[in-house]
Design a protein around this nucleic acid. Sequence first.
DNA 1: CCAAAAGTGTTGGCGTTACACCCATGG
DNA 2: CCATGGGTGTAACGCCAACACTTTTGG
Lengths: 211, 211
Amino acid sequence: VTVDIVVFAIVDDALHFLIEQRTRQPARGEWALPEGFVGEGESLDRAARRVLEEEAGVGGAHLEQLYTFGEPGRDPRGRVISVAYLAVVPGGKAAAGAPWRPVRKPPALAFDHGEILQRALERLRTKTEYSTLPLRLLPDRFTLSEVQRVYEILLERPLDKRNFRRKMLALDAIEETDGLRREGAHRPARLFRLSAARPYLIKERGILFPF
Amino acid sequence: VTVDIVVFAIVDDALHFLIEQRTRQPARGEWALPEGFVGEGESLDRAARRVLEEEAGVGGAHLEQLYTFGEPGRDPRGRVISVAYLAVVPGGKAAAGAPWRPVRKPPALAFDHGEILQRALERLRTKTEYSTLPLRLLPDRFTLSEVQRVYEILLERPLDKRNFRRKMLALDAIEETDGLRREGAHRPARLFRLSAARPYLIKERGILFPF
DNA sequence: CCAAAAGTGTTGGCGTTACACCCATGG
DNA sequence: CCATGGGTGTAACGCCAACACTTTTGG
């Protein structure tokens, strides 16, 4: 049993994910998702967190279980069952030299990792619609315009500035700080942070039966 | 690695799930979810389907992966990782003598099966809001009132008849047949079936950004 | 003074909710 | 003829989407 992790970050105004070059057989030299065996006496969540930190060098990220892949032929080592995780890290922490790849044209990946990536993407995009998970892609302090840019990247369409701000603020997921960001020849932007009260919001109400 | 299955059905106008009495150690004699080891060369989905049919005697049900449980201490046999599945079967097929239990006051369950049940319930309720999964709880032919009753049981609140019918029909998930159900001293009810075109609908649009 | 991004309100339309009565049948 | 559940339409309201200009700063 292994854990595989799809780590997302925004790099250069585009959604990227993290890969590793495999150092051992099988698929030595090929690109793959960060992966590791689950240790004896180690929970799945802890294994995922460990792999994320050891293999990918990323700490404190949002991490959630995604799906479990267990097709018999998916790994040449024999029967390997892989519990896939989805991780989301702030763009700033994306180490400069790390092998981030754009999700728009991903490289060929070993095993069934391409399929895992697709499922992670689908989950991230779905959650963009009804949760504040995308806020995890932002650094500690951020402007509302940056939030909007992240949502636009994920949804792949432009959003109306006024409507976006009104809705985002109404969620109470972020709160003002007294900081300002000054950069460039224009009015400084108010800085926000995740609100302590409800840092991660999932809207429970659905589409079918709001009545 | 095992698969555990939470099988839901409507029995006596209440949501029930299926349990089994364990015939072997560990936890012999206790109640538990239908469970089985994943065979060599068997995919997880196929293992789940097999367990569902062999252990629970249910065929042709809707089946989907739910979550993977891997806490080190969850099974006294040692390290057992369990891929949990959610199954939904028509109420009619609920074998008369089968050990269905109401989800409202479930019996004590072995291992961490209580937790698995809770997560399955949460998923089913969430999907009730934005998909037509609940239609799988109905028999081959059904009336609109029966559909409404199922949704009311799952959501635990009454729904307006006219609004419900309008919305349900607008989804194109069910279609009229020319059959009627006559029972009791009142107007017969039109029978419907799952529509061939879109038997399982998930609304993609979310709450946050419909604009 | 100019360029560039930040910030701010209102209105029309559409979708949702609320609501009450007639229909068809069996006994 | 009466009891029972099946079946149907509309109007008011609230929410959402569309839309343009002023503010603040650096150069």
